[in-house]
Design a protein around this nucleic acid. Structure first.
Length: 488
RNA sequence: GGCGCCGUACCCAAGUGGUAAGGGAGCAGUCUGCAAAACUGCGAUGCGGCGGUUCGAACCCGCCCGGCGCCUCCA
């Protein structure tokens, strides 16, 4: 049974859905005013894996992930570029889908936008005003935190503590410094919708309450996002939602840790971030390889811990993945011998048990990956003894099934005969790694030439070619049947 | 000032009371025309430090050291 760490209770708890076999899950997406960085990728990936694992465990998952498409930063960006807000949000939503697609992150069941839920937002705001939990000032509407006693429950903070450390300028019109905007009066030139309080636009937090309630109901199973959203965003969502409905909101709150660069949080304000497309653009490897390597890397640490991104870490992930795909290549080779056949079922079953146990334990992906590594070793050993073609296919299928939960091992080809790519540097730590361009056709030609040389026992020439390619990161592997294949 | 996180081998990383998973890198061996891959073997008497609780602690408690996050937009 799946156990998840619930931020709300501060404990690891057995996961139980409201309705049997069904899960409603809401995850805060991104504000679409710029390209996504690896931190966004990690968050998206963690919840993609949670969703995949819930499905693997037999649940039907309704997964809602929003786009915040009305916001101060979007407005600012649009003004800077002299275009409309719509142009900005359209551009970055498309970029989001493209970037996440490269990482194998499946689109959510629903991907709602704030601007498409203005009606719901206004209704929710009205309810909060009616209940005395919100008040109107000059066309703005604020949530009145002092009227909501449970405020601080998620982030384990007391209002008094927050006040003491508040670094915000106090808005005199607010009744309490921590009161936050549900509705903002629009200034000229800003996006604006009619409302009972005059033309304006929604505040940030209210959209998630409105959209989650609309798509998942007033009480649903899982709400997720990055750790930095715990306060104030998720705290405010709870206050708004519970305040308005009088019911429990999300039951499980799941938060992922940060991606760091040299031990520091990766963030826009620090300027130490790498965008997803930047990583792909700089990578030496074919796109599918880069996507899978990045995925492998991001899952190699438990989702709640910090994760340090570096060029070196990417290479290590690539090497580790290489071992799997080397095995998959071997599994493709036909064989009649089956001395190890009888052991395969047990070996797979053992791996499956370890894998499920790891994932059940608060999505312990590093441990789950260790189970897959263990299976890799066992299957390699059986291959030494001899595995029939049928059993080889069975082994490959086991990797594909479990790998699918993590979004790994789905490619039929790894870098063997990979699609054309250009060798460039992944210059994350300032070290140069690229050795110039090496197109596939050129490699193939040299491999063929070497093949011919070997047939004539011209090993001098053959080794010359091997060394030439090796210097460019191409490794040739001679097969027992006399053929050769290569990989990057 | 308040809330919280992290510190395990060269690197990454599980383990959270029962005597240190796994991977990468490295070294040695088998195999190979040479390689690669695979297989075999080697690798922390110790888990930031010092005390304490316990039959027993990396795991619990206390203090300290080092690094970081949130409290303001932030995945």
């Amino acid at each position: 049974m799946l156990h998840l760490f619930n931020t709300l209770t501060g404990k690891r708890e057995p996961f139980k859905s409201v309705e049997p076999r069904k899960v409603g899950m809401y995850v805060c997406g991104v504000t679409v005013y710029d390209y996504c960085h690896i931190g966004h990728a990690r968050s998206a990936l963690v919840f993609d894996v949670l969703r995949r694992y819930l499905e693997y465990s037999g649940y039907t998952v309704t997964f809602v992930k929003n786009f915040t498409d009305v916001d101060d930063k979007i407005i600012k960006r649009a003004q800077e570029e002299g275009v409309t807000c719509e142009a900005i949000t359209k551009k970055y939503i498309e970029a989001y889908d493209e970037d996440m697609g490269k990482l194998g992150i499946r689109p959510a069941t629903e991907q709602p936008k704030a601007t498409e839920h203005i009606e719901e937002i206004i209704r929710l705001t009205e309810t909060l005003i009616d209940k005395g939990l919100a008040y109107v000032v000059d066309g703005d509407v604020y949530f009145h935190v002092a009227r909501y006693p449970a405020y601080g429950r998620l982030s384990k903070r007391r209002l008094e503590d927050l006040q003491a450390g508040a670094r915000v300028e106090v808005d005199e019109r607010k009744r309490h410094p921590m009161d936050f905007a549900l509705w903002k009066r629009s200034k000229p030139g800003e996006p604006s919708w009619p409302s009972p309080w005059g033309p304006g636009r929604p505040g940030w937090h209210i959209e998630c309450s409105a959209m989650s309630i609309k798509h998942l109901g007033e009480t649903f199973d899982i709400h997720g996002g990055g750790m930095d959203l715990i306060f104030p965003h998720h705290e405010n969502e709870i206050a708004q939602s519970c305040g308005a409905t009088g019911k429990e909101f999300a039951r499980f709150w799941v938060h992922n840790g940060f991606v760091q660069i040299h031990q520091e949080k990766m963030s826009k304000s620090l300027g130490n971030f790498f965008t997803i497309r930047e990583i792909f653009a700089k990578s030496d490897w074919p796109e599918s390889v880069t996507g899978e390597v990045l995925r492998y890397f991001l899952l190699s640490t438990h989702y709640r811990g910090p994760l340090d991104f570096s060029d070196r870490a990417m290479k290590e992930a690539k090497n580790a993945l290489n071992g799997f795909y080397d095995l998959f290549e071997r599994l493709k080779e036909p064989s009649d011998s089956g001395t190890g056949d009888d052991c395969l079922d047990a070996v797979i079953e053992q791996a499956r048990v370890s894998f499920v146990k790891a994932m059940d334990d608060d999505l312990n992906t590093p441990m789950a990956m260790a189970a897959l590594q263990g299976l890799r070793g066992e299957v390699n050993k059986l291959l030494e003894k001899g595995l029939s073609s049928r059993r080889r296919a069975q082994a490959r299928e086991a990797f594909r099934t479990m790998g699918n939960v993590l979004g790994l091992f789905q490619s039929d080809v790894w870098q063997f005969g990979a699609s054309p790519s250009i060798s460039r540097t992944l210059d994350v730590e300032g070290e140069k790694t690229g050795l110039g361009m090496m197109a596939d056709d050129e490699i193939k030609r040299l491999v063929a030439e070497r093949q011919a040389a070997r047939l004539q026992k011209d090993f001098k020439r053959a080794d010359e070619i091997r060394r030439f390619l090796a210097a460019r990161g191409i490794i040739i592997e001679d097969r027992p049947d006399g053929t050769s294949r290569w990989k990057r």
